[in-house]
Nucleic acid binder design. Structure first.
Lengths: 192, 192
DNA sequence: GGGTCAACCAAGCAAGCGCTAGTGTAAATG
DNA sequence: CATTTACACTAGCGCTTGCTTGGTTGACCC
């Protein structure tokens, strides 16, 4: 019947859906609203996605996958000091949070709306991303740059970073780079 | 027609609503589900609350008000050193996050579902709470216990703490006190 | 012992929901 | 040229939603 692959058209529709999901929330966004935003009728929407749930999964997958790619690239391009790597991860995290802001806000707020299968699939992606963080935290601990419990420190850092979507204003005076410096300085006690 | 005051019955209903809002999310929780949880019929619900929105506002107000009371009590009971006060705030924050967990999860996740009037009213409460935090952060900066931008540091700390609702397991080996110690140690660089 | 009032109920309305069925059509494919 | 494919349309089914209406109950009060 319908197409479930990842055509370029589907990518674009996914991007527009993310926008609406952020504005209205997943449950309040109707398939008719989505269709209107996409410039088609509601019936046509089900040619691209099996159901409404699948649109949510597509949005979150897109954002998480991008975050992984960007973080890996950032780690490849910086030197081996734990401080530089910590900085690079923080900065990469904040940058995806901005460039793919819609997708990430949806991932943070609407994760629980995913059905079990989609959640299991996306959990793996997210775990892979968090593993990058824990590796970098481990290096910083080994070098004595920071101290404390590996698990707790990484959760605290992720929390501080993810929370930025609630207050950060890209039009304000602070760049993502500023934020990354300030955060690393806070936990390493070296001047920003 | 209906009662809009804060009767004891209404308090209890609010507590039960919070539970359901956490489990299902605000939008997915129907008035029929709420009524069943409360042991009444859906029509009777509108004797206690003007509409569904008002239930959400009641849940969030309850949680935020409690957080304020607990934080103020914690600050009153500890000595004047910036480190002790930082510790006390972090601990108080984590304790409300646990004892009033449902209300706070709702406040974090469903804030955007509030209508503008309720949001404006509750914003003031939240601002009062955040002002307590900024005062304590200011003291710590003045004493040289921590360094950096006042605004950013308080946002990072609040993010790290609020994020705990996503991963913290009360049945696990770590107490809220442990978490507070570890967090303060992380940003002050003194051993936990 | 009539009046008041909070609390609850049964029944249902109007609107909106996700999704399906069946059809049209222009471009790509054999 | 005939067939398939991708994408869109119209129309509407079956169900759920938040909320209203009109009325009943039992405890308390002067």
């Amino acid at each position: 019947m319908n197409v479930i692959n990842d055509s370029p058209r589907r990518k674009e529709l996914t991007r527009q859906a993310a926008q609406l999901f952020v504005q209205e929330g997943f449950d309040r966004t109707t398939v008719r609203m989505l269709a209107q935003e996409m410039g088609i009728k509601s019936g046509s929407l089900f040619h691209h996605f099996r159901d409404k749930q699948e649109i949510l999964a597509a949005v979150i997958e897109e954002g998480t996958q991008n975050a992984l790619v960007i973080a890996r690239a950032a780690l490849d391009q910086c030197d081996n000091s734990a401080e530089a790597r910590l900085q690079a991860m923080a900065r990469a995290h904040l940058e995806t949070l901005l460039t793919d802001r819609n997708a990430h806000v949806v991932a943070l707020y609407e994760w629980r709306r995913l059905d079990p299968e989609a959640r299991a699939h996306l959990s793996h992606l997210r775990d892979a991303y968090e593993a990058l963080w824990e590796a970098v935290i481990d290096e910083a601990l080994a070098e004595g740059l920071i101290h404390g419990d590996r698990f707790l420190v990484s959760r605290f850092v992720m929390g501080a970073l993810n929370w930025t979507v609630r207050w950060y204003d890209p039009a304000g005076p602070r760049s993502p780079d500023d934020l990354a410096h300030e955060l690393v300085a806070m936990i390493t006690h070296r001047p920003a």
